[in-house]
Amino acid sequence: MAETTHPVPGGPGAQDSGDPVPVSRARLVVRRFLRHRLATVSLVLFVLLVLLAFVGGALWHYGYDTFTPDNSQPPSAAHPFGTDATGYDLFAQVLRGTQRSIEIALFVAAASGIFGSVWGAAAGLYGGRVDTLMMRVADLVLIFPAIAVAAVLANNVATGGQGWLLIGVVLAALTWPYVARLVRGLVLSLREREFIAAARTFGAGSWRIIFRHILPNAMGTIVVAVTIIVAVAILAETALSFIGFGVRAPDTSLGLLVSQNQSAVSTRPWLFYFPGLFIVVIALCVNFIGDGLRDAFDNTRSRSRT
């Protein structure tokens, strides 16, 4: 970047630079991210929520499926979020639901991130007919409203232990085209960059170009996209559970809780508000983290100069 220079005879342009600390990109990204205050707060909150759901859920003295003698209790010390008509402790259920939602969302993000990246990168790199065909397939998925396909697919999902995983697979199957389109676009533009041509001139092979040059440069955008998918997946999972095709009783999820308790809004509002608020807070955190990451990775921020 800008240098301050001294008239040192002995080499044109061979002066030492003014600021001595070389900044690696990773550190630059972290620094920029931390400057985004909301994103930083969201990250901390998100980590706390994850810990609460996974560790706290295990420690809490009621399980999500434990009957308690208290029915329809408003929030109290014993039941911070109150209880429902059957006597389930809502706090335990919300923690369980949060756990499910986060598990599913992270799985969806990872699966569709990886699959979509590979698909999009392959399409972009091969180009031509292969590209056309591969992107057609991706478009195919995008034409159908996700909720309908998800409902069809998830309808015969067996209830029980691994049910959530299948929902994750279904949602990943519906979200990967977004990643694929994005990555393809990135690869197409990176492929035209001169440094790729440069690498080819000294004999770099395809694999080296992909893994040393294209992937590292595409990583930022992919990470941001995958973060957004986490938020999308959380909302999609809760919506699916809400209409009855997602996680099913006796297991529970935040969407299912809202669905089960929607008629209680006016009589026992806690049953409706707590799970809903958890969804909003989680999704909000993830969206803010995504925004922070976008800012952090974006080095095209224009600086107005002559």
Partner: peptide, 14 residues
């Protein structure tokens, strides 16, 4: 070997 016009574009930023 070749030297390109745009020194920024021909060097991998990472």
């Amino acid at each position: 070997q070749i030297v390109f016009q745009d020194p920024m574009g021909s060097l991998d930023p990472r």
